[in-house]
Simulated assay, not measured.
Amino acid sequence: MSSSPERRVSRREFDAIFTAVRTWGRWTPADRGAWNRVTADHVRRAAALVRSGTAVPLGLPWDTRTGPDNRKPALHHMTDLGDVEAPEPSTYKDFLAADYHGKAVSHLDALSHVAYEGRLYEGRRAREAVDAGGARFGSVAALGPLVTKGVLLDLPAVLGVDWLEPGRAVHAQDVLTAERALGVTVDAGCAVLLRSGRFRRSRELGPWNSDAASAGFHVDAVPLLAERAVALLGGDGDSDLRPSPVEGVHSPVHALAVAAMGVPLLDNLDLEALSAACAEAGRHEFMLVVAPLDVPGGTGSPVNPVAVL
């Protein structure tokens, strides 16, 4: 596995990668992007991976506490405490809200979430497609539920460490090495989940500002993922390496995956229980079920994906 200092990537090099992995004009409906790859056959093959029936939730708890990794805490308060005297029964209700595009809420990024040089996926002009009323192209409502094969790239398990240190890049060669070590195959229509061990590190050493430093994919891994025709990308971070290796681009993997490839992202998944379940089962492939909220015009959705082994 690579441990060399991270190579900086010029804007010109990045733009060449963006052009090389771009899939604009490939699918109808366009605002489903790479999710169009997932057919009924993919779902049946994913279901065939279920053996023990173990279901592992991947979403984080709803976090209402402020911290270095949660500068905009989610909201939860009660709106009904059973105060109505009649008629029976009494009821108890609550309110939830979140500015979920951050580091503390498990969520899905739809294709309207990221623009590069002012353009969303398919080359749609972001200012024409997204306004104060929401997204008219690439909304999370266009995606619907996704069921497909999930592949856990458990890099700490491969390396024999508890976690990847913040700032550690995952290169294309790391992906290939992990496939061999874990006995998995990243193939067309699958969902790739990268475990860096972020939440184990956070629980043992305390939270930190992962906007400043986090393990994630280097841009040189993206052409391999594009070649393998993945449908979904995610992890216990936000897939991006931080600090960014690309000059002038703070989230290059977001730009490449969402705006160029049409691949939605799953951010901030808790993969610790899944890591343990996969190790116990001796396999790192499973059925993954993702059901975003149907939010017309939404640029994403909080989610609690489920892996079934």
Rank of each mutant, 00 (worst) to 15 (best):
R26K: 11
A46Y: 05
A55N: 09
L205D: 14
V9S: 09
S301G: 06
T54C: 11
W163K: 00
R127N: 09
P166S: 02
P207T: 08
S275T: 08
V184I: 10
H107I: 02
A259F: 13
D270Y: 10
T64D: 08
G160C: 10
L193I: 02
S301W: 01
G216E: 01
T185W: 13
T39N: 05
G25Q: 10
S275N: 06
H254W: 15
R283A: 07
R8H: 10
R44T: 13
W163F: 13
T39Y: 14
V192I: 09
G138W: 02
S52D: 15
N268A: 13
P87A: 05
S196R: 01
G197R: 00
R242C: 05
L58Y: 03
T64I: 12
A276L: 12
V258N: 02
V306G: 04
V219M: 08
V222I: 15
G262M: 04
H77N: 07
P223T: 07
A46M: 11
W24S: 06
H77D: 10
L288K: 02
A221V: 04
T54N: 12
V50K: 09
L225G: 02
D131C: 03
D294T: 08
L293C: 07
A169G: 11
R44I: 10
G282W: 11
L120Q: 07
D154M: 03
D236V: 00
D240V: 03
V170S: 01
N209Q: 07
A226Y: 07
G59E: 07
